[in-house]
């Protein structure tokens, strides 16, 4: 279908963009890979679309002080191919490579994806496992929130009216840690029916740190804290994986019932953890 009529602005500077959206009566667009389909399906009909695509520098990727800083309009392709990200936070590069198809990865952005907060998106699992932070700015504010406090509900985030996602800050992974993102793609849409991001650090044969982020399973991405604790206290992968969806609300749809989804979460958590463990040294 054709979207309903809307006003379109493409500000040339961040200041201009923040001024435009300060009124709140508009929708911010980056790559448009989520917003445009919604508009074409008439599930979204914004009066005014503000396109951040022409704001210079908003897609930069850099590292300083043990943190990788990724601009909101960095594309999935930028992220999967960036030497900085592949070297410093390879889990995120791996997650990016699972998103959509080549065309979507060339257009879609990190900031757009997380601001849209589809419960079946790929990034949230990794961002949670990486304990990333999201920097939000508006015309008169600048704040940083933990990834764990960012994803609130389906299509609902901590972003407030007048704010945009400016950048994502990811603490670097240690070279010796193991990581893995595993996903059950929906056969038609390619979205994550279940996606599990795992990070493991080992010392002397013991797991000293485990971080597990899960997307797709519930209405919002979550950290599997109980499973992490089990691993850190010496439990095996199967035991930890069994606890991965513990206490979490579970989605159900035409493809997978809640029961089956919980099952898939455990199976794929076990697979992700096994691979992460094998990569850790």
């Amino acid at each position: 279908m054709i979207p309903q009529n809307f006003e379109y602005s493409a500000p040339a500077t961040l200041q201009e963009a923040l001024q435009l959206i300060s009124g709140g009566e508009c929708k911010v667009m980056a790559g448009g890979m989520s917003l445009i389909p919604l508009m074409k399906l008439r599930l979204a009909a914004p009066e005014h679309v503000v396109d951040l695509g022409r704001v210079p520098g908003l897609n930069s990727i850099s590292e300083s002080g043990g943190v990788v800083c990724i601009g909101a309009t960095a594309t999935h392709h930028d992220i999967e191919s960036s030497p900085v990200i592949r070297g410093r936070v390879p889990l995120l590069a791996e997650a990016a490579s699972h998103i959509g198809d080549v065309q979507v990865r060339n257009r879609g952005t990190l900031g757009g994806s997380i601001a849209h907060a589809d419960p079946a998106a790929d990034y949230p699992a990794s961002l949670l496992a990486l304990e990333a932070k999201v920097r939000l700015v508006s015309a008169n504010s600048d704040r940083t929130v933990e990834a764990a406090d960012f994803f609130l509900d389906p299509f609902t985030t901590a972003v407030e009216s007048g704010e945009i996602v400016l950048e994502v800050l990811v603490p670097i992974e240690e070279p010796r840690e193991g990581y893995r993102y595993e996903k059950v793609p929906h056969p038609a849409s390619g979205f994550a029916v279940v996606g599990v991001a795992a990070r493991i650090k080992k010392a002397g044969g013991k797991t000293t740190l485990a971080r597990i982020g899960v997307t797709g399973t519930g209405p919002r991405a979550f950290r599997a804290l109980a499973a992490e604790k089990l691993l850190e206290s010496g439990a095996d992968v199967a035991t930890a994986a069994a606890a991965v969806a513990e206490g979490q609300e579970t989605n159900a749809d035409l493809y997978a019932s809640a029961e089956y989804r919980r099952h898939l979460t455990r199976v794929w958590a076990a697979r992700a953890l096994t691979l992460a463990l094998s990569r850790a040294s």
Binding site: A242, E259, Y260
Partner: peptide
Amino acid sequence: KPEEALVTQ
């Protein structure tokens, strides 16, 4: 069926 820990409830 896989091991106990992964069995569907």
